[in-house]
Nucleic acid binder design. Structure first.
Lengths: 235, 235
DNA sequence: CGTCACCTTGACTGTAATCAAACATGGTGG
DNA sequence: CCACCATGTTTGATTACAGTCAAGGTGACG
């Protein structure tokens, strides 16, 4: 499945936020990907950068036996694909129906002859942001417990979605698990435990829509598991 | 302990390899740090970049209860501190007596007015290398077993030390463990298992000097644990 | 209405952590 | 030179956290 684009049209309008990569030199095109479809694969040539207009994307690596580590979730407004070198180091696919804007990477940083310093600095800032996220995630994956991981995940999503009243997660339990280095069952148990503590609750009949009732207690869980046998039926 | 420099002298000679950050604009000074001393702390202002001439450095984050995740080891020739923003995101300290060359970060990439494109691109390449390393480490921390982690660590060191006949690791078991998200006991057991398989052996009376006898079998261990009860006395 | 994908929950297992002890090493000073 | 101690490593016994296996529930969609 190499062609997984369901629609494409060209535009020269700049993308939204979060910086001025909307360079005079870049031409952005809109594309749509359906849920589950692959946007690019690991080791493929990296010719484009992407900005999400609608929907969400996961980027991940796979081991030969199917174990998967999701490196990041990309939400509306996020730019991704810019940190790659000649070839993609991750696979990216849409976790819901997703609309992106695409620009040629070459238009952002060409060869050595690139002379647009402000664009170059913006690119570096984006790469640095990715690096900072990855560094924080190393600590989470290597040294935090299951409950801490799930709590930290919820806080990250809450922050990135701008602390909404009601948080509609675009990803399922399996994706959360592969982001946190856990199994989906463990994620589910941790969420149930937080719900039993009244730190959050589910809204509607889909379990992906969550209300955070007590962000500060959630933040406590994200840094110290309390070792209070959180997965037990009681407590 | 803010001042932990034991000697400092100024030089204008360029540093060794691995790229041309030896800019005309940068002035490098030599400093020495004794084993265990801190080079910079997390959240401190990041004013300098460092290149290791001799010795080794670990960079890490700490949780409030003392859990530690080492993000990277830096070996002779490596440049570090360049990927930071205004403040350091890691603590760095010397794991053996270490000599570094230091340059003002501002001399490498000043404000928006920086006009030296080749230096700018070299900086971006270094940051991208750090990002790639961190991304690979996410997969290792999140989805690989203890034996796979230790095998991968040995292969990484082997590669970075240019596949020496005899590999003298600068770091102890505790540091390896904190790099791999394990305990030092588990690291020790994994090394013992690899030694029992004759994949490696220890040289001399310090257990930090290792000879790799079979890099291809070690590489197998790094990607599939074989689930052969590697920690058992038999086999 | 039946199937499928997703989620929760329970029972049990297993990998790595924890606790503990023994041994080696290297430096210090008697 | 050697006793002594601090540090680092190995190994064993046991525990515990999260994984695995399994069953059941719920909603979406054809």
């Amino acid at each position: 499945m190499r062609v997984r684009v369901s629609a494409g049209k060209t535009t020269t309008l700049p993308p939204i936020q979060p910086n001025e990569l909307a360079s005079q030199k870049a031409v952005w095109s809109e594309f749509k990907y359906r849920v589950g479809s692959e946007i690019f694969g690991e080791a493929e040539p990296a010719d484009y950068v992407y900005q999400i207009r609608q929907g969400s994307v996961r980027t991940y690596k796979l081991l030969s036996d199917g174990r998967r580590q999701i490196g990041a979730f990309h939400l509306p407004g996020d730019i991704f694909g810019i940190e790659e070198c000649e070839f993609h180091r991750f696979t990216a696919d849409a976790i819901v129906n997703t609309t992106v804007w695409i620009a040629k990477r070459r238009s952002l940083f060409g060869g050595l002859g690139d002379s647009d310093i402000s664009v170059t600095n913006n690119v570096r800032d984006l790469i640095t942001k990715s690096l900072e996220h990855a560094e924080n995630h190393l600590l989470l994956l290597g040294r935090q417990t299951a409950l801490e991981k799930v709590a930290a995940f919820l806080l990250e999503m809450d922050r990135r979605l701008d602390q909404p009243e009601v948080m509609a997660l675009p990803m399922g339990r399996r994706d959360i698990a592969d982001y946190l280095g856990l199994t989906l069952e463990t994620v589910s148990r941790a969420l149930s435990a937080l719900r039993k503590e009244s730190i959050l609750s589910f809204v509607g009949q889909t379990q992906r829509v969550i209300v955070l009732h007590d962000r500060s207690r959630l933040a406590q869980r994200a840094t110290s598991s309390f070792h209070s046998k959180w997965w037990c039926i009681e407590n």
